[in-house]
């Protein structure tokens, strides 16, 4: 007897759904646009990219990227990565519909409880990249680590740890 096996979805349908979810999360946040952060998606892995511009300078004499920009970049990477991972299952199962996401209907985002950033070297005037890893994902609280680098992935210029309060399912 033939097993009940559904045909895999066409790749563009999968991509459209995943990109729509990411766009719904990050596309509507004004501060992400202000800093110029974009997200690159490979499967469920996100890389945040901060293209360099003069507005991001914190020390004009070096020059170096502003520590606050670095902190915001890491925090943004952490919150979007956490949210994306959190939504992933519902997006994949069809619980959350793509057309709803595209219309801006989005579940509430996690709230930052605290955020610690370690500055490891000064941020050079060039593009920066960051990835985050969800180290704990509970019903109410989540912990996320994020790392940012520039030319060399093995030499991060900053790392951060954040704790988040997860949105309640019934809201």
């Amino acid at each position: 007897m033939m097993a009940d096996r559904r045909r895999p979805e066409p790749v563009q349908v999968v991509k459209q759904r995943r990109d729509a979810a990411l766009h719904a999360l990050a596309g509507g946040v004004p501060y992400i646009q202000t800093l110029g952060i974009v997200f690159d998606r490979r499967g469920d892995e996100l890389t945040a990219i901060l293209p360099f511009k003069d507005d991001l300078i914190g020390n004009p004499f070096l020059p170096a990227i502003h520590g606050g920009v670095t902190a915001a970049f890491l925090e943004m990477t952490a919150i979007i990565t956490l949210s994306y991972q959190w939504l992933w299952e519902d997006v994949e199962s069809g619980e959350i519909r793509v057309d709803e996401l595209e219309a801006g209907e989005l579940p509430r985002l996690p709230k930052t409880i605290d955020f610690t950033v370690d500055y490891l070297r000064s941020g050079l005037p060039r593009d920066a990249y960051a990835r985050a890893r969800v180290t704990r994902s509970g019903r109410r609280y989540a912990s996320v680590m994020a790392e940012a680098w520039q030319d060399n992935r093995d030499r991060p210029f900053a790392m951060g740890t954040a704790h988040f309060l997860m949105p309640r399912g019934d809201v």
Partner: peptide, 8 residues
Amino acid sequence: IHGGAVSA
């Protein structure tokens, strides 16, 4: 406002 702006 975003927490990142407060960080800055």
